[in-house]
Design a binder for these strands. Sequence first.
DNA 1: TTCTTGTCACCTAGGTGTTAATAT
DNA 2: ATATTAACACCTAGGTGACAAGAA
Lengths: 220, 220
Amino acid sequence: GVQLEMKGLWDKFNQLGTEMIVTKAGRRMFPTYQVKILGMDPASDYVLLMDFTPLDDKRYRYAFHSSSWLVAGKADPAAPGRVHFHPDSPAKGAQWMKQIVSFDKLKLTNNLLDDNGHIILNSMHRYQPRFHVVYVDPRKNSERYAEENFKSFLFEETRFTAVTAYQNHRITQLKIASNPFAKGFRECDPDWSNRNSNLPLTIPYCRPRGGPHSKQQHPG
Amino acid sequence: GVQLEMKGLWDKFNQLGTEMIVTKAGRRMFPTYQVKILGMDPASDYVLLMDFTPLDDKRYRYAFHSSSWLVAGKADPAAPGRVHFHPDSPAKGAQWMKQIVSFDKLKLTNNLLDDNGHIILNSMHRYQPRFHVVYVDPRKNSERYAEENFKSFLFEETRFTAVTAYQNHRITQLKIASNPFAKGFRECDPDWSNRNSNLPLTIPYCRPRGGPHSKQQHPG
DNA sequence: TTCTTGTCACCTAGGTGTTAATAT
DNA sequence: ATATTAACACCTAGGTGACAAGAA
């Protein structure tokens, strides 16, 4: 038995049409893919991993005027199919079960030649994350039991479109509202008094919206 | 074969009489204990760990007027003897050998009731870090071979005095000069132009030395 | 036009010695 | 006196979306 953490948040994103940024250097997913696991043999070793399968054979584009995704043609050639092993693998069932398993080291890239072991995806294509549990069979000829030792789990609410820049403004707003690292882009809210106050007074409490970049010169 | 990394830096500290801070919450060591390992069986599992043995049965105090350590009596009751397993343990020899093994997650505490698995030491006592490699023997009754599967390594230049605040000012200065996290306490030096320039002009380029704390008020 | 890239200010998270206050 | 604690400014390290410029 496997249970998706933060299902409520995943549902909110999925309702709007989740988008995940892909960059050359690799970008984490948000929400982070996290699961709670039950029913393992506490004393046996398991390997945990994730991969991503195309949801269909199409390429998409976003129609801003109608705020909806449209099919833009057939899918680009599939990216190299990679797998992300959870870095704690292998570990005992007891270890995996005693806390939430988080794939926060997993990064998505659109660089077909990526050299960092990140997951390679095509931008403007839709994907379904999958979670796999491999029982490390101590028996000889354990490869014969590969099928029964391999279990996959799939949560449809985690599907998403890979993008290099957010398309749906509501997705952007939900990311900003829910990802702690994007707090700098939040509008003033009742929480404003919680922000770090050890700042020079020249820094405003709410980031000015839509203004141009002002690059500060080094005085020297 | 095991080789101590940053031996030159360890030697510098050891020459002055290394001090390591212990706190209730736990403090990392600096320099960090790091080793390069050779001669493992690449395909076998190993567990790596560290512990700390008292260098003698004495308690010390620092004489500021003579800038030297003096014996202040017999050692306090020994703290609970703990061990720090390298968090990547167990892993294959190939994994351990292909890069420097760093014990940067190890923390020292003076809290006898510590609940975080940190190494407990008595302040104002001297210690010798030890590094251990345990070969995970696949044979049955492997406990019979425990002795031959257990190898210890000891670098005398890593010995230190546990303290709650630095005693020797030269140790403080060497820590500040060599630990990146203490850069804020460095005097102006030729590297000053490398510092982040995206700062309000009200912040000086060199921290004022010896001034009192000025707590900034939140304008609410 | 549409999509991608690189840089940036702004955050989170946590490792430093300093200092003043407290404990012994 | 001597030793410890807790709060703090200042860092390292790295995760955000915004934006302008570039590419297709």
